[in-house]
């Protein structure tokens, strides 16, 4: 097992290199970093521009340039942002922390309720409860997150105040303007709406996965064997049903990290929540290459990491899978 993990980690290095190379090309073609720099800093001297090109590896030759960028990236010589010459790492670190907090909260809430809803639906297929859960999940999937975000924001930012005289959930940022220090309660309040938006998507998706997976399992022969043993329904469900039903759900979950991050990007932007999503949209809009590349590295690395985690839990759940 340990060997497997080590080998996978070793393999992820070339993957990471290849994908970041592709990203590097895409960003160079798509955002024209040098032009963006000149646009943002119209009075930059020729020497300044050359310095910017050097440190970011923006040579005309993409391969040479990429390796230059890579060397500087690894040795920690990161260029500052093109606008305002901000240090990239502190900004990225804060964004990561904020997104991790929001993402974890939403994923935990979402998967927990999603799985429960899926199980409840699958236990009485075709029943009123099933139809309700299944239809709600369907509606949940069909509504894009930015729509629910706008509508919730409209409700809480404008009308709640108007109707009830007090605001319930703030609709932007992590803390009120000017706040310093840590305040858990305040933070949770600010996180509530974005968490709900992302969690709704996760609940909707996972309840459907879980429902169909558990339905398959419930109709399987080994469940009939379990029933013919005379053990209780509850034990049958937990001991024989759940673990088998989770196997395909875990596989899908690995491929889903991207879409959860996607939901986060949209939601963060709407709620002005200073995470990875807001960071990306801002720096992308300005063509800020020094900010964008490290962001991409983090995203690619986390996708690879989550894939590994999913494979490991998959093998842990299913003895038929041997990790070699």
């Amino acid at each position: 097992m340990l060997r497997y993990i080590l080998r996978r980690l070793a393999w992820s290095v070339p993957t990471l290199l290849l994908v970041t190379f592709l990203v590097y090309i895409a960003l160079r073609v798509g955002t024209d970093p040098v032009e963006s720099y000149k646009r943002v800093n119209p009075r930059a001297s020729r020497a300044k521009i050359q310095q910017y090109i050097d440190i970011n590896g923006l040579d005309p030759n993409f391969v040479q340039g990429y390796f230059k960028w890579l060397k500087n990236f690894i040795t920690g010589e990161w260029a500052p942002s093109i606008k305002g010459r901000r240090e990239v790492w502190p900004a990225l670190k804060d964004a990561m922390a904020n997104t991790l907090r929001l993402g974890t909260a939403a994923t935990v809430v979402g998967i927990f309720f999603g799985l429960i809803a899926g199980v409840l639906a699958a236990l009485r297929p075709g029943g009123r409860r099933d139809v309700f859960i299944n239809t709600s999940a369907f509606v949940g999937i069909s509504i894009p997150p930015f729509i629910s975000a706008i509508l919730l924001q409209l409700l809480f930012a404008v009308y709640w105040q108007k109707w009830f005289g007090a605001s319930l959930f703030p609709t932007s940022g992590v803390y009120p303007a000017g706040h310093t220090g840590f305040d858990l309660f305040l933070m949770l309040k600010f996180m509530a709406l974005p968490t709900i938006i992302v969690a709704i998507q996760i609940i909707a998706t996972y309840s459907r996965y879980m429902r169909s997976s558990l339905l398959d399992v419930l109709n399987s022969d080994y469940m009939r064997t379990a029933r013919s043993k005379g053990i209780s329904e509850r034990r049958i469900l937990i001991k024989h049903g759940m673990r088998n039903a989770l196997i395909p759900v875990v596989t899908i979950a690995a491929l889903d990290v991207g879409s959860i991050v996607g939901g986060l990007i949209i939601t963060e932007n709407i709620f002005a929540y200073p995470g990875m999503g807001l960071y990306f949209l801002k720096s992308f809009g300005e063509g800020d290459f020094p900010l964008l590349m490290p962001w991409m590295v983090v995203i690619v690395a986390s996708i690879l990491l989550f894939n590994l985690i999913a494979d490991i839990s998959y093998a842990w759940l299913d003895p038929r899978i041997r990790l070699e």
């Binding site: 798509g30 955002t31 024209d32 491929l255 991207g258 879409s259 990007i265 995203i299 894939n307």
Partner: peptide, 22 residues
């Protein structure tokens, strides 16, 4: 796999710009 693993909006925006940049 690669394309689908990435956050959709990110790929969409980047590819959009790449297309426009050619």
């Amino acid at each position: 796999d690669l394309f689908l693993a990435f956050p959709f909006l990110v790929t969409l925006l980047v590819v959009r710009n790449v297309l426009g940049g050619l």
